[in-house]
């Protein structure tokens, strides 16, 4: 099931002028995007390994589930995060979600733009909507994460169950 269209709802709303058009759109739902070159967690965070630091955010699938993000809670630079534990939270109109760190390490930078423009998580989950940069304390933790293909399959299976 595709969740991306919920998030790009404004665009849809403009196109949807009558019942017939809406029906067509429901058939054309597409899967949310998963990028190559990133690793993923089963709690729907992505991580981009850049050697000395790794960038972390939530996936397109996650932002689609949440809907429009209205508030992002981030940790302080210098604090530590540990694999599988929450480091922040994302709030949408619909729901609150804790965001877990896929790896352990020290937070070296946080995306301050999200404080003013939390919607970047919806519009650009993998680029402008990044959340924190972490200096990994145990780089081998990255090996246990999901690759793009595995994560895509994981999302499909999870959606099929609900």
């Amino acid at each position: 099931m595709a969740l991306k269209l919920w998030a790009s709802s404004t665009a849809n709303a403009l196109k949807l002028s009558n019942g017939r058009a809406r029906a067509t759109f429901s058939i054309s739902r597409s899967f949310s995007s998963v990028l190559d070159g990133l690793k993923y967690s089963s709690s729907h965070e992505w991580i981009k390994d850049e050697g000395s630091v790794a960038t972390i955010g939530i996936t397109d699938h996650a932002q689609g589930h949440l809907g429009e993000v209205v508030f992002v809670e981030l940790p302080e630079s210098g604090s530590s995060v540990s694999k599988g534990s929450g480091f922040g939270a994302v709030e949408s109109v619909k729901a609150t979600s804790d965001v877990n760190s896929p790896i352990s390490g020290e937070v070296v930078e946080v995306n301050k733009k999200l404080t003013e423009t939390p919607g970047l998580i919806n519009s650009s989950p993998y680029e402008e909507g990044w959340m924190i940069k972490v200096k990994p304390s145990n780089p081998t933790e990255l090996d246990s994460l999901l690759g793009p293909a595995e994560y895509t399959k994981f999302c499909e299976e999870e959606d099929a169950h609900h």
Binding site: S43, H44, A62, H65, L66, K94, A95, T96, S97, N100
Partner: peptide
């Protein structure tokens, strides 16, 4: 209802 929203989100964190 909002718990319902929360249940959707808990699925995201899956902890």
């Amino acid at each position: 209802l909002w718990q319902l929203g929360q249940s959707l989100s808990r699925r995201l964190s899956n902890s």
